[in-house]
Nucleic acid binder design. Structure first.
Lengths: 225, 225
DNA sequence: TAGATTGTTAATCGATTAACAATC
DNA sequence: TAGATTGTTAATCGATTAACAATC
């Protein structure tokens, strides 16, 4: 009876929500599993299954009511208030993320940046950039749970430990050091203490080249190795 | 007999390779499935299975020879020459990627950036920033197959089409527009024409918050919904 | 009614895990 | 030999796909 909400499904739910909000803003009221599927690149059956799992019913002939979907998705995803994060490391990538235009639109607010380089500090800016040493106090005071990590590779691990000690429970890791904390670490990077998502840019590019090569080789008569 | 090399496995292979290269530079000669597993967060059995699939044998008692592993991995991953990419859109994120320190270390070279904003152009820089209009010619001349896309959301789709027309076969997409080309589009974003990897920063952060909430709720006695 | 869409169950596919035999 | 590690097969788990009954 009670089906599990697994990771690929959560990601889809978040995507549905985005599409639905756009549809709503366009004045739409109802939507078919068909259309939603197209929008996020899934089959209609998957969409219906997902909705069924989170307990949303459509009308056999008239599809799903967008408002009801949005309401339930927001509830399931727990996305009812602005999500506050800090950016740690304000070099090129860090400062780009500090000012990332899409964040406000997606209900994410960067409340501060942190760095050890004095030249980058700017405590009075709208989004202040503070010395890394102030992070623990700041995190506690503001109840920060999630950080974006964009420091140089060599200090990644030590800054990561600092974050965990400061009570951060989730890290979006832009360094190319594969971070893992404490105990057993699942493929996803989840432990009891801290959840890490690694955005490994180099690995992604490498993988693109691999897939391209694979396709090319598949096109050639000779069956691969 | 012939086992398939699937996506999660390819990603692991790339990680093995990195670790092995580090081990080698430290003077190591042999390695156990055990150690490699720890390093990339997999079980020893997975490591052995992976190596078995790509046709590498270890010594029952002495583990695997690092040099042989590296050689074979490089071969399988096709990573024997520098991988050349362009960065399209040289705003904050784009220009951060243009100068991304890790790329050279990982065998990736950004050969040019492209933008429509005149102020950002810099044709004589070491990594030149050229007008977007020159991209098709440039891509053909230099045989560019992979692009990093970091343009503003509203123009993402049209620039993406331009890339495909220019012969680009792989795109690392930093916009929050979910790109898909032509025909059937798998979850991964693969089509016959062009492979897209979406780096959806907002979605990742959202997912972090979701997982953190989930853990907290799981810790509380009351079983979730 | 006929047609289209939902919703659920069973079948299939994909990948990991477990178990253990082989052997250095 | 005893111990440790590889390598392979079978079992299990997880998620998607297919099929179809229900019904507006």
């Amino acid at each position: 009876m009670e089906e599990k909400i697994h990771r690929p499904m959560v990601l889809r739910l978040a995507r549905y929500l985005r599409v639905l909000q756009k549809l709503k803003s366009l004045g739409f009221v109802k939507v078919f599993s068909n259309n939603l599927g197209d929008a996020i690149g899934a089959t209609p059956a998957v969409v219906r299954k997902d909705f069924s799992v989170i307990g949303i019913a459509g009308n056999k002939r008239g599809g799903y009511v967008i408002d009801a979907l949005i309401e339930r998705l927001v509830e399931v995803l727990g996305k009812n208030e602005v999500e506050r994060v800090v950016v740690v490391g304000c070099g090129r990538i860090g400062s780009a993320l500090l000012n990332y235009r899409e964040f406000p639109r997606e209900g994410i607010r960067v409340v501060a940046g942190f760095d050890t380089n004095e030249d980058r500090l700017d405590p009075d800016a709208e989004i202040p950039v503070l010395p890394l040493s102030e992070l623990p106090g700041f995190a506690e005071e503001h109840g920060i749970e999630v950080a974006v990590l964009a420091v140089p590779d060599p200090v990644a691990t030590s800054v990561f430990e600092l974050l965990i000690d400061a009570g951060v429970r989730g890290v979006l890791n832009f360094t190319s050091v594969e971070l893992k904390c404490g105990a057993a670490c699942a493929e996803d990077g989840c432990t009891e203490e801290c959840t890490v998502h690694n955005v490994n840019i180099g690995l992604e590019i490498e993988n693109l080249f691999y897939l391209i090569r694979l396709k090319r080789d598949a096109a050639v008569p000779e069956p691969v190795q």
